[in-house]
Simulated assay, not measured.
Amino acid sequence: MGPRSVTYGKRDIRFRIADLDEWLGVKAGVMPPPEPARKRPKRPRRGVTLWEAFVVLGVLAGILALLRLLGLH
């Protein structure tokens, strides 16, 4: 992984001198490597979860059993 950069267009890349100095210091062993950035916690999933699908299937099975019992199906 290289120093932080800013890209202009497709090919033009710029670096800050402070970022280059820090990167070179880490590569040469002069400075300790920076701590990795913490990742944000994952967002909860949207949509139907597995247990909700089982609940829906159970309700549908119950309705079908009730219809068969009443002789409507």
Rank of each mutant, 00 (worst) to 15 (best):
M1L: 11
M1H: 12
M1Q: 10
G2S: 14
P3N: 09
P3Y: 05
P3I: 03
R4C: 10
R4Q: 13
R4D: 11
S5N: 02
S5L: 01
S5R: 11
S5A: 05
S5D: 00
V6Y: 07
V6I: 07
V6N: 01
Y8S: 13
G9R: 13
K10P: 12
R11M: 08
R11D: 14
R11E: 13
D12N: 09
F15W: 14
R16N: 08
R16Q: 12
R16M: 08
I17Y: 07
I17P: 00
I17R: 11
A18R: 05
A18M: 02
A18H: 05
D19Y: 06
D19G: 04
L20A: 10
L20G: 04
L20M: 14
D21F: 05
D21Q: 13
D21V: 13
E22K: 11
E22I: 05
E22V: 06
E22P: 01
W23F: 15
L24Y: 07
L24R: 10
L24T: 05
L24D: 09
G25D: 07
V26A: 02
K27S: 02
K27V: 02
K27W: 00
A28F: 05
A28E: 07
G29D: 00
G29P: 02
V30N: 01
V30C: 00
M31L: 15
M31V: 09
M31G: 01
P32L: 04
P34H: 04
E35S: 13
E35D: 14
P36K: 08
P36D: 04
P36T: 03
A37T: 02
R38W: 01
R38D: 09
R38T: 08
R38L: 11
K39L: 12
R40S: 15
K42V: 10
R43W: 12
P44H: 09
P44L: 07
R45F: 10
R45Q: 15
R46H: 06
G47N: 12
G47E: 11
V48N: 01
T49E: 05
T49V: 03
T49W: 01
T49L: 03
T49G: 08
L50Y: 09
E52Y: 08
E52T: 10
A53P: 00
F54W: 13
V55T: 07
L57G: 10
G58K: 03
G58Q: 02
V59C: 12
V59R: 03
L60Y: 10
A61S: 15
A61R: 09
A61D: 08
G62H: 00
I63C: 12
I63R: 03
L64M: 04
A65T: 13
A65Y: 07
A65R: 04
L66K: 03
L66I: 11
L66C: 08
L67Y: 14
L67W: 15
R68Q: 10
R68N: 09
R68Y: 06
L69E: 05
L70Q: 09
L70N: 05
G71M: 08
L72V: 13
L72T: 04
H73V: 15
H73F: 13
H73S: 14
H73M: 15
H73T: 15
